[in-house]
């Protein structure tokens, strides 16, 4: 039985540097994934066909935070 879903991942190529980015199986649209090689942040988007694509995440704004 799956204890922790995040252990299960699939890989998407980083649009910036072509490294493999681990994306959790239970990824949600809006979730942030980061490239382990170049550090770029992406926002996962799940299309109508269920396919996950990575879009560049918003750049941190000066009003961001808690």
């Amino acid at each position: 039985m799956k204890q922790d879903k995040e252990e299960y991942t699939f890989q998407i190529k980083c649009p910036e540097c072509d490294a493999d980015i681990e994306v959790p199986d239970d990824v949600i649209s809006g979730e942030i994934v980061s490239c382990p090689d170049c550090g770029m942040d992406y926002e996962a988007k799940i299309g109508a066909d269920g396919k996950v694509v990575l879009e560049q995440a918003e750049i941190e704004g000066e009003d961001w935070g808690e």
Partner: peptide, 26 residues
């Protein structure tokens, strides 16, 4: 939300666990 970070994801999981119908608004 505007970003699903670890925090938001854990809230979504907690809602599912509690049987709460959580409406996610991006």
């Amino acid at each position: 939300f505007d970003r699903i970070r670890w925090d938001e994801k854990s809230l979504i999981r907690a809602a599912t666990k509690a049987g709460v119908d959580l409406n996610l608004v991006d």
